[in-house]
Design a protein around this nucleic acid. Structure first.
Length: 897
RNA sequence: GGGCGGUUAGCUCAGAUGGUUAGAGCGUCUGCUUUACACGCAGAAGGCCGGGGGUUCGAGUCCCUCACCGCCCACCA
């Protein structure tokens, strides 16, 4: 059988249409914002994925949400920009390239800094575009012409400008301080880049003899005995009676033989261990602070390479730190000073990137002084106020408290990294005068003494320093006359996962306000993590990752997007399963087939001109579906405005599948036989509008259908957009609600359901038509007009309509759908007893309901305190239930007569 | 130690401003090649909305409390 050339295929083939449509959109320039001064702009920046990145489901989720918001605003006519970008990702990228070098048998030190940087750039040029292409396959409607990389000249200048400003204000400073050090990555880390994990370890109790009386001793507890080589004190709580007479004296540090003072410090918890703490200011953050308070010296016994230093003494120098741990414990044991060792479960800090155990070390680093949140002019203070005062709204709201709490306990941010890949800190040191200064542009000579012997700082900045500028550095800042900055800053919304609230969102707020004086965005929308079907976090080591590219090939991009964003609330984690994906794919297919039906039904008709505004569609079914459509339109717009995308999609799903496909289309089939022009117009109207409502969520299937549809029907007078992507998003300026149509349709649908139900109960074959009489009881016109629909959908033939209780058909089955009574003369199928029993049950449940409502209305409190419309609703309900009950009673009375 | 989230049908989850008889997907059971769709249609079963207390005429929804699960933060030697 041959099909016409323009026939629409039976099943939706996502793969075949997606690339073509995306290319069309791109070529048409739809992704670029259209500036309209009369409208508020909408701008969202893509969280820049790492250049080393491959698209994972987290990216797919982010992109789906951002694209939906972007498409919605674009269709509303707002000047809309979704700005894509990529992050150089210092540690991660350097790590990847270093691994490649290792495979070649070389390393970065052998190559030297410049050659190494060239190698990384080569790598970026070669593989760095992968994720852009993957975003395109997702249908991301971002403006690729504005693609930014954190190392691009613009963003780089923003980084330098920011640094220099903060440096000149004295807020960026260089200081020797204890920091988190990753011996494998060989760099300092910020507090945030350390992950704490519970591990099984040992707690060693070590006896330190007193210097002035070796018979006396003080026992300390530690999980890291190797660090004792660097001890410079012992601390106890000043009010601890056990140690009262020891404070002020000295202990003799075993192995080393150093005299170290016993000090009193309130940071000590008396209940922990022995109540005495060995103080190692060089290798522990708390100890460092205690040391500062008591003027204890700092001794570094562990080096940057994770091995013991010369200061650890000849026996241990050069020994790897964990080997030294065992060796020190052994030596202490042999000295009889290791009192006991117990199993101990505690948390250990490890490098976020490589999982190496982090070593706290004293090191000269650059810090950003963010100040205290209580200081209104400090960086932290202003970032705090922005959220506390509501200039920035966080969705869901609960994360606002998390954010504020973090800022309330924030410490200075260590921003320097001992890496080669990144923004090199723009500070130059003068070999001649010893001074240093920060510069936006590379200086030729020392600003103080004019010497040309200057050298740039070798450290680079924390990657998050540059991504923290993203909402403005991508828009032209610090250029004063940047149009983009004027139009799109502040961004409307920042959408990302809650896991980088501190890393990224908080930094953007701090630095955005610092640089521009204005918040970087009005709203923050945080999504949850994508988990596997068992609720486990996806990870490569666990082997439970799903590749979004596989999924979109298998189910279609729209289905993947729909599955990722439906049935989930903001900030909540979501489990992705094959069932969910299948359900979404089925929905796409359902839309496709509904459209095939509509298109086939209306093709070649010449009476479709009013489809975009079907005023002639006055049949109750038309008014009903159009009313539902308007209610849906209002709901979807409201949900989108509140970032409830999952709910919006749920409502769309319900409307399309249930209201439109299951009821309206099925009823339309009947009217099409009678060549009712209004039904064709309404079919087109509802389908076309539904497609537009759905487009932000399922861009491909809706565009493909829409093009198929509009090419076969007359263009409306208002003109037709060339793409659904820039067609107007449906609004509800005038709601076409139809309460009478709604209630009448309710009775009709319930009647059909009741008949279908009894047919199934009585196991009457679907093919068998039943005859029936419907007593219309005041709804004659409705029943007459819906006679064919009821007849076809409930398989009734012939269907007669009577005015009121006629007593006809008293044998058989009587269904009461108030005010209607359906009489099915099923003599022989159902006997009198069975029918009596069924009616008794009906009566019983109706009475129960009636009694409950009666009771409610008898309650004076309810009647006087509930809103009038609620009371009226209950009154109406009681009336209806009473009628229903009376009708059933009447039928029972005449039963068998 | 502090904070947050979850607890709703067999499973996974929705339930805006408190208001009928609490919803969906998947699964289960019964029927259907009804020419848009078997990625489908029709029908059905299945819930003291974690326990307890409170506010209210009315609570899945608001307050208190307990339990279990999960997450985040913190300088738990």
């Amino acid at each position: 059988m041959t099909q016409p050339a323009n026939a629409i295929p039976r099943a939706y083939d996502a793969g075949a249409v997606e690339q073509r449509l995306y290319q069309n959109w791109w070529n048409s320039g739809y992704f670029a914002p259209r500036i309209d001064p009369s409208r508020e702009t909408f701008c969202v920046v893509m969280p820049p994925p790492n250049v080393t990145g491959e698209l994972h489901l987290g990216h797919a989720l982010t992109a789906s949400l951002q694209d939906a918001l972007t498409r919605w605003h674009r269709m509303r006519g707002d000047p809309t920009l979704w700005l894509p970008g990529k992050d150089h990702a210092g540690i991660a990228t350097q790590w990847v390239v270093e691994r490649a070098l290792a495979a070649e048998g070389t390393d970065r030190h052998e190559l030297g800094r410049e050659v190494f940087e060239d190698r990384v750039w080569e790598w970026v040029d070669r593989y760095g575009n992968t994720i852009d292409e993957q975003h395109r396959r997702l249908g991301a409607s971002c403006d690729w012409a504005r693609l930014r990389f954190t190392l691009d000249p613009g963003p780089a200048r923003a980084v330098r400008t920011t640094f220099v400003n903060l440096f000149n204000k004295g807020l960026i400073y260089r200081h020797e301080r204890i920091i988190n050090w990753c011996p494998r990555c060989s760099t300092a880390l910020s507090d945030l880049e350390v992950d704490y994990e519970e591990r099984d370890g040992k707690l060693y109790h070590i006896r330190y003899p007193m210097a002035d009386n070796p018979d006396e001793s003080i026992t300390v507890a530690t999980t890291r005995p190797e660090s004792m080589l660097g001890d410079t004190g012992v601390a106890v709580h000043p009010e601890d009676d056990r140690y009262h007479d020891m404070v002020g004296r000295s202990a003799l540090l075993p192995i080393v033989g150093r005299e170290i003072p016993v000090v009193g410090d309130t940071a000590i918890e008396r209940e922990f261990g022995t109540g005495a703490l060995k103080v190692t200011p060089g290798h522990d953050v708390v100890d460092f602070e205690i040391g500062e308070r008591h003027g204890l010296p700092i001794i570094n016994v562990i080096g940057f390479d994770g091995c013991m230093t010369d200061a650890a003494g000849p026996r241990y120098a050069g020994m790897e730190r964990f080997a030294a741990r065992a060796a020190v414990a052994d030596e202490l044991d042999s000295l009889g000073l290791l009192e006991r060792v117990e199993d101990y479960h505690h948390s250990v800090g490890q490098c976020q990137r490589c999982s190496e155990v982090v070593e706290p070390l004293i090191s000269l680093q650059w810090f950003l002084n963010v100040g205290q949140h209580t200081h209104p002019d400090s960086i932290a203070g202003r970032a705090h106020a922005a959220v506390a005062d509501g200039q920035i709204e966080i969705v869901p709201e609960r994360f606002a408290r998390v954010y504020l709490n973090w800022l309330e306990n924030i410490r200075d941010w260590c921003i320097s990294r001992q890496l080669w890949w990144g923004h090199r800190i723009p500070v130059w040191y003068c070999a001649s005068c010893g001074g240093h200064a920060a510069h936006i542009d590379d200086p030729a000579a020392c600003v103080s003494c004019g010497s040309a012997e200057i050298e740039q700082e070798s450290d680079v900045l924390d990657t998050w320093f540059s991504s923290g500028l993203w909402p403005h550095s991508t828009l032209g800042w610090p250029e004063q006359d940047s149009q983009d900055l004027a139009h799109f800053y502040p961004n409307a919304v920042l959408e990302t996962g809650y896991d980088i609230l501190f890393f990224w969102v908080a930094r953007m707020i701090m630095l955005g306000i610092e640089n521009t004086g204005d918040v970087p965005f009005r709203s923050v929308y945080l999504h949850g993590m994508v988990l596997d079907a068992e609720g486990q976090k996806m990870s490569k080591t666990r082997g439970n990752t799903l590749d979004p590219l596989d999924l979109l090939e298998q189910y279609g991009t729209d289905a993947l997007r729909f599955a990722l964003t439906t049935g989930t609330a903001p900030g909540n984690n979501l489990r992705l399963s094959n069932e969910k994906l299948e359900s979404a794919r089925n929905f796409a297919n359902k839309i496709w087939n509904a459209a095939r039906f509509v298109i086939a039904a209306v093709e070649d008709r010449d009476d479709l001109h009013g489809w975009s505004d079907p005023v002639a569609a006055q049949h109750r079914e038309d008014r009903w579906i159009i009313g539902r459509l308007d209610a849906l339109t209002a709901d979807v717009n409201r949900c989108l405005a509140e970032f409830e995308l999952g709910e919006a999609q749920q409502k769309l799903y319900d409307f399309v599948w249930n209201d439109f496909c299951d009821w309206y289309i099925e009823m339309a089939k009947v009217r099409l036989r009678e060549d009712d022009g209004a039904v064709a117009v309404t079919l087109v109207h509802v389908l076309e509008r539904s497609l537009r409502l759905l487009h932000p969520f399922m861009p491909f299937v809706t565009e493909e259908i829409w093009q198929n549809l509009v090419s076969r029907i007359p263009a409306p007078e208002s003109g037709l957009s060339p793409s659904i992507m820039i067609a107007e998003y449906p609004q509800t300026d005038q709601m076409r609600t139809a309460p009478d149509a709604e209630s009448e349709m309710d009775v009709v649908m319930q009647t059909i359901r009741a008949i279908r139900n009894i047919r199934a109960q009585l196991r009457i074959p679907a093919a068998q038509k039943l005859e029936a009489v419907i007593e219309s009881n005041g709804m004659r016109r409705v029943v007459e007009e819906e006679r064919e629909a009821i007849s076809v959908l409930a398989r009734i033939d012939p269907l007669r309509v009577a005015d009121s209780e006629s007593g006809e058909g008293a044998t058989g089955v009587s269904l009461v759908v108030n005010p209607l009574v359906v009489r099915l003369p099923l003599t022989g199928v159902v006997d009198l007893d069975a029918e009596q029993q069924r009616l008794d049950q009906e009566l019983e449940s109706t009475r129960r309901n009636e009694a409950r409502v009666e009771q409610l209305l008898a309650n004076d409190n309810f009647v006087s305190k509930a809103r009038p419309e609620v009371v009226e609703k209950e009154r109406e309900r009681l009336r209806s239930l009473s009628e229903q009950r009376e009708r059933i009673e009447d039928i029972i009375a005449h039963l068998g007569a």
